[in-house]
Design a protein around this nucleic acid. Structure first.
Lengths: 227, 227
DNA sequence: CAAATATTTCGGCTATCATCGAAATATGAA
DNA sequence: TTCATATTTCGATGATAGCCGAAATATTTG
């Protein structure tokens, strides 16, 4: 008896370098136009259109039209999870320029993993919340403690709203660069949104890396004792 | 800036149904001959040979020759990890026969995940060991407690030898069927070997499902309070 | 209204991959 | 030594996927 043949279908989404590139770019959680994605993947808009249609059909991405622009983003976090998993095993790309080195460092330090914070900062923040008694590990998830609920509500997160969502609440996501877990799920999403709203972090242009602002450095230090 | 283009290379290993099927079969941790794998994948031995050569070259499988037979197995657990991850997201195959239903149940109940125990039993055993204070979760791994070291040594596992191995010691592996973690790493491997040695479990013919023996049912009940 | 821009569609091309029949090679059994 | 089995190699074939130029369509701008 063989295996689940749908595995090959999922893998085929990612085995084509152009598609893999575009999907990894979409891990930044932003909308991207078709033309932008074409440039990122190094293909013509016609070829990009071909791939995007395929991914739309397979419900991997969603699209919003705004005038003549088509804005694409990841449909949900499932493909992000597979991407992180493949990134765990794929050899790192060779770094042969200072620019690539800096980009690699930035991505490793802090990035969005579709809709939550990943990288060194994401993992560090998660582990700090465990130490502070906000979260505690529970199987493939984190459990939010009572104290944690109070803490995060005071921090400005609508915990109840996050809990009500149908998706997983506080899932562990294996970070490909740190090889440890960061917080995902609707709570991870809410936390990321709050960090942006507070301007503690901001997105870098054309990258899924995020940068900690001066405000953020103060905030992480004062609220989470992270520096 | 795009992503890591090596992701597509890894995914391309699994996007071809024949290869994906063979690799999933190898998750049972056994050796399989080239002809067996051809049958499993529903292709001719020539085609199987073509794919196996490719996977040998990419160091995904290893081969041992014994007379005219060629015995293949997974090189290490990395591709197993990607497979489990893809199985988390891939739609389940439709079950349209009683035989398939039984096979699916067996796989879900207990199976080898290349070199450690997975499925409901694998997860349950892992969670029980956490409750018993043998293991405790620690990031992407489990930490073995002092009591746990004593317990497992008394159970007949050479814990020190497992610790000395260069691979990860007690890694969390996300179980695609339970969506929770089971124990992987060299400790997970040693535990699986012990369960086989005690004849608490045995492999089913032509499947990566494993069956609990009567001896095993007693053993799990008496030693781990699992029933 | 014309020009510019973004995107899609169409048709065709090319490269590559998976397949297998036939044959060759390697090993074991009678 | 011959025959049988397992596996690999070779060469050919067909399918398909990704690509893009040209053109069409949709929307915005001047």
């Amino acid at each position: 008896m063989g295996g689940n043949s749908n595995v090959a279908d999922v893998a085929s989404l990612l085995c084509e370098p152009s598609r893999a590139n575009m999907l990894q770019s979409l891990l930044d959680g932003r909308f991207h136009t078709a033309t932008e994605l074409a440039v990122i993947a190094g293909i013509t808009p016609q070829t990009a259109s071909y791939h995007l249609s395929l991914m739309l059909e397979l419900k991997v991405v969603t699209v919003k039209k705004n005038g003549r622009h088509r804005y694409y983003q990841l449909a949900d976090g499932q493909i992000a999870q597979v991407l992180e998993s493949l990134l765990c095993i794929a050899p790192s790309e060779k770094i042969n320029s200072l620019k690539k080195f800096n980009q690699n460092q930035a991505i490793r330090f802090a990035r969005t993993c579709y809709d939550h914070l990943a990288g060194k900062l994401g993992v560090h923040l998660t582990e700090t919340m465990v130490k502070m008694g906000i979260l505690h590990p529970s199987g493939a998830d984190f459990a939010l403690t009572e104290e944690g609920k109070i803490f995060l509500t005071n921090f400005g997160i609508d915990v109840l709203r996050a809990q009500k969502k149908r998706r997983s609440f506080a899932r562990c996501c294996l970070d490909w660069s740190e090889r440890r877990y960061h917080l995902a799920g609707s709570l991870g999403h809410a936390l990321l949104e709050k960090l942006f709203a507070l301007s503690w972090i901001e997105q870098l242009p054309e990258s899924r890396a995020v940068k900690v602002t001066e405000t953020g450095a103060e905030g992480f230090k004062n609220v989470f004792a992270i520096q």
